[in-house]
Design a protein around this nucleic acid. Structure first.
Lengths: 183, 183
DNA sequence: GCACCCATGTAAGTAGTTACATGATTGC
DNA sequence: GCAATCATGTAACTACTTACATGGGTGC
């Protein structure tokens, strides 16, 4: 069920990267939508190299720093990630959100306190919505929308999802605040 | 960061339950929005009993079956779950969805194949949307919406979230299918 | 001078999944 | 007869988080 190797292959299919890059991309670039720790990335890369899914490029060496090992995807790796992409996703209902659990306990606390919580939560989601909007504005001009082979198009697909998710979250907060006010 | 004990307290604040009940509720009732295994529930309940957050009620015994141990929340447990509910949620960006990762690889495969994937995914979300709608229809009539102390109101809050989430997902699929068709 | 960045990696601990074990009852 | 439900729990495994270690460079 762990998809970390597929997440790594998904990034390497676009461009060669070091383990450090991969970690940064996953934790910062895309939302983050797939967080990992370095203890997951480095051993997994070694395994994948042994299995022939990735291979090392030239090593960039600065004497004072660990060598930067850049990996690129192999033909075998590319074929594996394409197969995985086409295979049906095994469905996971993934609403494990701490704030949702707190909402489930709304009846335990004063409505006014709950309203404050919703407003705080709303604020966080507005901020993230804005980062998505900036990313979108940044990518859209450089894009040929009619070219389905451009990875940027796929990037925009998932940013669009993030955007909709945040909008939905904000609207939900607004409606919950309304409901709590009229109680 | 693990909230399983708060999830357990959230359920016990509403009614006394056995470990088995708790597992069933979490895995089936609410979507599921917070899945657990029995290996997490039973040891955690023991710990919580030792800490005075929950206590055992009478044990229902059928000779042919393990005794059903029903737990109820203590005053200390209730105060703890109220405090936790009021404390600010630590934010987690939680878009780890296998299908999203596949979407990120859309550029690697034929648009027609990707369209099929989106239609399959859409179908799953329509089904879940329908179960939420049924739950909502089931609960709404028995409800006094003006009574903020009724746990059902809070239950509806999170079902409403699930509903919006599924609607958003379906709309996103529709738009992605549109985009892929015009490419 | 202090914190953060780069860049590799390891270690230790927590959380979560899957499978197993018991064993009568209920429904197909 | 076979599978599922109830009800407890354990065992083995996988996945994830947090912290640590090195050590020069860069910005405040």
């Amino acid at each position: 069920m762990s998809s970390i190797r597929y997440a790594i292959l998904s990034l390497l299919a676009r461009e060669p990267l070091s383990g450090y890059d991969i970690k940064q991309y996953m934790n910062n670039r895309l939302g983050p939508f797939w967080k990992v720790g370095s203890n997951q990335v480095y051993p997994e890369l070694s395994k994948m190299e042994a299995e022939g899914l990735v291979q090392r490029q030239a090593v960039e060496q600065h004497s004072y720093r660990p060598a930067r090992k850049v990996y690129e995807i192999t033909a075998q790796g590319k074929s594996e990630i394409i197969d995985w992409t086409l295979a049906p996703a095994n469905f996971e209902l993934n609403l494990r959100d701490e704030f949702l659990l707190k909402t489930y306990n709304a009846w335990l606390v004063e409505p006014d306190n709950m309203i404050s919580s919703f407003m705080e939560e709303r604020k966080k989601h507005v901020e993230i919505l804005e980062t998505y909007q900036m990313k979108l504005a940044e990518l859209t001009p450089t894009l040929d929308a009619s070219n389905s082979k451009d990875p940027l198009n796929s990037t925009i697909f998932i940013i669009d999802f993030g955007l909709r998710h945040e909008q939905m979250y904000i609207e939900w907060c607004d409606q919950m605040i309304q409901k709590l006010k009229t109680e």
